[in-house]
Design a protein around this nucleic acid. Structure first.
Lengths: 156, 156
DNA sequence: CGCCTGTCGTTGAACGCTCAACCAAAACGC
DNA sequence: GCGTTTTGGTTGAGCGTTCAACGACAGGCG
C-alpha cells in the first residue's frame, strides 16, 4: 500500500496534546478525590450511580456494562469487588437463566449518597467552573458527536 | 458545614456524561489499536514520542514524567518495561548523581516510526474526522483552559 | 563543616483492567 | 427434536497504575 501518512498539522497537534493533558488531568484528579473521600475509583462510582437510577435499583449485568461503557469482563470483576464491599448483591434473572441482576444494597445507596455531594463539587470545580456557558455547550456538542462517531460505527 | 449541594442541572449532566462516554471511548479505542498494532499501550507510546523529540533523544526522568503527565513511580515502572523491551536505555545524569536519563534507542525509534502512521491515522479517524474545523478550534481552547485550570492551581 | 530539609528516582504490594478461554443457556436452522 | 451458533457472564493470568515507604543525593542555613 505505502500510502503517504497525513500527519497532524500544528493546530491539530496542539489540540490533540491539550486534549490529552486536560482529560487525563481531569480524570486523574476526580479519581483521586473519589478514592480518598469514598474509597472507590470513579468507575465503581458510576456503576453505583447507574444502579441507583434504575427501576428497583437493579439492572442486568450486560445493560449495566453498556451503560457504563465497560466490557463484560471488567464489570464482572468490578461486581465481585462491589459485592465484597456489600454495596451490591447479585440475583438470578427470572426470565433468562444465563442472566444475572446487579442490585444496589441499602449500604451501597448510603455510600453513594455520602460520596455524591463531594464528587459533584469536584466536577463543578474542575470542569464547569473553568468554562463559559458557551464552552459548556460546545463541549456537549463535541462530546455527543464523538460518542456517536465512536460507538455508532464499530469498525475497530 | 452542612452546605446544600448544588447538583448538576440537566444540561450539565448531559454534557458531563457525554464527555465521559466520548473521552473513554476515544482513549479505549486508540489504546486497543496501539496495543494491537505496536504492542504497547498509549502511555508508553507517548513516552517514546517525547524522547524522540528531545535533544539527543534523551530526557531526565522527572522531565519525562512532567511531559507525559505521569507520576514518578509510574514512569519508573514504565521505564523498566521499555528498557526490557530494548526501546530505551538508562544513563546516569552527569550533573546530578541522583538523576537518571532515559535515552531512546535506535530500536525504540524504529518501533515508534513504525507505529506512528497507524496511530496518527487513528487519531484522525476517531477524532478530527468527526469534528468541523470550528469544533476543533473550540476543543483546543476548552482543553487548554482546562489544562491550565487543573495544573495551574494545585489545590488538592 | 554538619545538620536538615527537599528532591530524584526506585521498589513492592494491592488493585483494576485486558485478553483469551471457558461454561451454560438461549436462539436458530433444518 | 437435535446439532449449531450466539449470547450472557465468569475466570485466571498478565500487565499497568497507585500508594506508601524508602535510600541516596543536593541545596540551604547556621
Amino acid at each position: 500500500m505505502a500510502v503517504m501518512t497525513r500527519w497532524l498539522d500544528p493546530d491539530e497537534q496542539r489540540t490533540w496534546r491539550a486534549f490529552l493533558t486536560a482529560s487525563r488531568a481531569l480524570m486523574d484528579t476526580l479519581d483521586r478525590e473519589l478514592q480518598r473521600d469514598a474509597g472507590m475509583p470513579h468507575a465503581y462510582y458510576e456503576i453505583l450511580v447507574r444502579l441507583s437510577e434504575a427501576p428497583d435499583r437493579r439492572l442486568r449485568m450486560s445493560e449495566l456494562a453498556d451503560a457504563t461503557g465497560s466490557s463484560r469482563s471488567r464489570l464482572s470483576h468490578a461486581a465481585a469487588r462491589l459485592e465484597a464491599a456489600g454495596w451490591i448483591r447479585r440475583e438470578d434473572c427470572p426470565t433468562d437463566r444465563r442472566g444475572q441482576l446487579a442490585v444496589l444494597t441499602d449500604a451501597g445507596f448510603a455510600t453513594l449518597a455520602a460520596a455524591a455531594p463531594g464528587h459533584v463539587a469536584g466536577v463543578r470545580r474542575h470542569l464547569f467552573d473553568a468554562l463559559s456557558p458557551a464552552q459548556v455547550d460546545q463541549l456537549r456538542r463535541i462530546s455527543e458527536t464523538l460518542a456517536d462517531h465512536l460507538t455508532g460505527s464499530r469498525p475497530n
